[in-house]
Design a protein around this nucleic acid. Structure first.
Length: 277
DNA sequence: ATTGGGACCTGCTCGC
DNA sequence: TGCGAGCAGGTCCCAA
């Protein structure tokens, strides 16, 4: 699924292309049922709110993309697992699984394609923004420090893997990067968060910074069945640098022991049973 | 309060 | 070759 680095890549690409472009038309397709229009907006309200608006800013918060306009409304998009935002010239052949599209004034359109329909799209107001407020801090922001991480981990007894995945604690990390971060920090995913020693917390913090930054530079990870693609339909490059995710049965690149996987609350986690302690 | 598990979705892989 | 079962997982929701 698109996690922080993938969403950041999309934000960066779109930001260069659609600023000050006007939304000429909003098309919502019949099979867009799965797009959850949260809040009190119906699809028709949604179209009305956005049609004719000029895009003024594209930001990211956690795994959400936030579009600002020449109005009070903010469009928030969560890509779920399989969501893509494809930026195409309007005369380009149709893409599969497009649930919604924004036709822009410059002859291009943004196509929201989402085979598994886990994506969400909704309108929020800058002043009443409960969802964004409920998100934890951005792990790459200057205010996210080792001290902060230590404080937050000491408050939770649950597994460190679960803590990394909890968007209310830290925003933007999903299954792929939580595995990679824990592997790099040599921490077992089932360790209780509050049991981590100061040294380990420092390693965890460093691993988080390094991996997320490297993944952004690599323009994200296209792995597994998620088939993340950027706005031009191209894959990322970080999958070539994965150390542990989806390497079950293969040798650990650090110690040679066989990588194992285990279910953590419905999702699979990969780790080395020898060097992650 | 915290924690855990199921539901939502559907394309894809695997085994018989 | 065909078909059904199972898997993938972010977030919401409910129960213990």
């Amino acid at each position: 699924m698109p996690e922080l680095p993938e969403v950041e890549t999309i934000r960066w690409e779109l930001g260069k292309k659609i600023l000050n472009k006007r939304i000429f038309r909003v098309e919502i397709f019949p099979d867009s049922r799965g797009i959850r229009f949260l809040g009190s907006y119906s699809p028709a309200d949604f179209q009305q709110k956005l049609t004719g608006r000029t895009i003024k800013d594209v930001r990211r918060r956690g795994k959400y993309l936030l579009f600002s306009f020449d109005s009070e409304s903010i469009l928030a998009i969560h890509l779920g697992m399989t969501g893509k935002l494809l930026y195409r010239p309007a005369d380009t052949p149709a893409d599969k699984f497009v649930r919604m599209k924004f036709v822009l004034s410059n002859g291009y359109e943004i196509r929201f394609a989402d085979p598994r329909k886990f994506g969400k799209m909704f309108i929020i107001s800058p002043t009443d923004d409960k969802l964004m407020e409920s998100l934890g801090p951005e792990p790459l922001s200057p205010s996210f420090t080792v001290d902060y991480l230590q404080k937050v981990l000491s408050r939770h007894r649950k597994k460190i893997k679960e803590v990394l995945l909890d968007q209310k604690i830290i925003a933007g990390i999903g299954n792929i990067y939580s595995d990679e971060i824990l592997f790099r920090a040599k921490i077992h995913p089932e360790r209780s968060a509050c049991s981590l020693l100061q040294e380990e917390i420092f390693l965890l913090f460093s691993a988080m910074q390094e991996i997320l930054r490297a993944a952004i530079v690599a323009r994200g990870t296209t792995a597994g069945d998620r088939q993340y693609l950027n706005t031009t339909g191209k894959p990322g490059k970080f999958q070539y640098r994965l150390q542990v995710y989806q390497r079950r049965g293969q040798e650990c690149l650090r110690c040679g022991r066989v990588i194992v996987s285990k279910k953590f609350g419905g999702r699979s986690g990969y780790f080395c049973p020898q060097c992650q302690v």
